[in-house]
């Protein structure tokens, strides 16, 4: 558990559907979920159960149809797109399964992007980006292109990018699914350390049982609902 019990995320009765008429698909059917500051919560479940939709809503990327979602004290449903973008840019970090690094930018330039989006001057952004890269163990290779890095190193760069602007919430989508076991564990080590050190909330969507050990709690989803929340140790 985290160092305190303040809620970083509070979701109640979240409903989200895609399409309309006969093609309507309900991805979330009333999700209730709390995530505390400093906590690493994993969301697991079969493909199509609504995990990605859930983190998209929590990450202020997608709007719910109904229900309440309060993230870092902000009621997302009451925010317009600009306010949500500001929230994402300032307080939320993202780690993606496919890394989503820009191939033409060096590692340090990739990591600096969130700062640049927030208006940080170039030099200061790159300086902080170098610190973030060092923090994830890639301090010796800040100027290489993503194509010159291994999958694990690329994911570390992506983690550094998610952390560089000191977000309060980090949303990770299958961060280890493209990595071998050892690398996946190492990446999770970095993520967990970054979360605990600064009391950040981490939400990790995963299929990978090898990393369940890093979870404080695990939310099990199926058919658009959270059917059970267990603590991480009990999943092992």
């Amino acid at each position: 558990m985290g160092s305190n019990n303040s809620l970083a995320v509070r979701c109640r009765s979240l409903v989200k559907s895609y399409g309309s008429g006969d093609a309507k698909v309900t991805a979330l059917r009333g999700v209730d979920l709390d995530v505390r500051e400093g906590e690493l919560l994993m969301v697991v479940g079969p493909s199509g159960c609504g995990k990605t939709t859930l983190i998209s809503i929590i990450g202020a990327i997608l709007s719910q149809d109904s229900g309440e979602c309060i993230v870092l004290g902000h009621d997302l449903q009451r925010m317009n797109e600009t306010e949500r973008a500001t929230l994402r840019g300032g307080q939320i970090g993202f780690v993606f399964q496919m890394f989503n690094l820009l191939p033409s930018l060096s590692a340090v330039e990739n990591v600096a992007i969130p700062l640049l989006i927030n208006g940080t001057p170039q030099k200061m952004a790159e300086s902080r980006a170098r610190e973030a890269i060092e923090a994830v163990g890639l301090g010796s290779r800040p100027n290489v292109l993503p194509s010159e890095l291994s999958g694990g190193q690329q994911q570390r760069v992506a983690i550094a990018r998610a952390l560089v602007h000191d977000p309060k919430l980090i949303v990770c989508d299958e961060p280890t699914s493209n990595l071998d076991h050892d690398t996946g564990v190492a990446v999770m080590d970095v993520l967990r350390g970054a979360g605990k050190k600064h009391d950040r909330a981490l939400i990790v969507v995963t299929h990978d049982p090898r990393i369940f050990q890093f979870a404080d709690r695990i939310a099990h989803m199926d058919d658009g609902k959270i059917i059970e929340v267990t603590n991480g140790a009990s999943a092992l």
Partner: peptide, 16 residues
């Protein structure tokens, strides 16, 4: 588009 989506997810405004 995917790269722009990444920027957008990270909070880049439409104007940016």
């Amino acid at each position: 588009l995917r790269q722009y989506a990444v920027f957008k997810a990270m909070g880049a405004s439409s104007r940016m």
